[in-house]
Amino acid sequence: MLDDLKLWVRLLATAARGRMQYRVDLFFQILAMALTTAADFLMVWVLISACGPTIGWTLAEASLLYGVVLVPFGIVQFINAGFERFHDLVRRGQVDLLLLRPRPLLVLVAGEDLPVRQIGRLAQAVAVFAWALWMIPLSMGDCLLLGWAMAWGVVLYLSFDVIRAASAFWTVEGSEMWNVLTYGGSMAAIWPAEAYRPVLRTVLLTIVPVAAVGWLPVAQVLGKDHGFPAWVPWLAPTSGLVLSGLGLWLWTIGLRRYASSGS
């Protein structure tokens, strides 16, 4: 297990060196990714400043939520990109080659790619988060809750990627539909969920529990009324565990199916 973890880090380092061969554009690619993803912050900023106090969240508060959601998301996009390419690997028959290696397929796929440009996404989210932390005084307990939530955020987004990748064992078509789960989920999560109509809020707290991992703990820290007992924001982030279990189960039966269908 530890050995596999070490291999994963090593594979990522190798993948990054491959990417570094095209060093000239690297800087621009990182900058471009930061610009593209900053559009989401632009939305938060514009809506808060255009509609003023009616929303009940200040820009700093919304930025805290933004960071709690997008820093874990950025980390996962950076270290876990192999899964995003998995449909392509299946389509090109590359998975057969990976299966010839005496290691868990999950580790080999996770180590397939380290897209350096994703640093742009992460850096942009970290910058917003840092500003929010500087603006808002937080107690030790608050920081603990946010750190706890963000760690589960990483687990949650990793699970999304595994579920998305596992679907390739059944069909390689329509892989872009899974973007709704990953990018759509994170986009919906950066806006305070109490403002949403009940249908979307329920979806985001249960089926795609991005708000359970992001909004609930942040609302608690900021003293907003989220409508749940105070222990719920501590427990809710562990919903990532359920999804990671689901992801691993789908991956296992998918792999078994792949081995018997050979497609």
Binding site: D25, F28, Q29, A32, L35, R117
Partner: peptide, 13 residues
């Protein structure tokens, strides 16, 4: 190539 990479960033925002 770098400038080409930047365009989608502006485009999106």
């Amino acid at each position: 190539d770098g400038i080409a990479a930047l365009v989608p960033g502006f485009l999106w925002s």
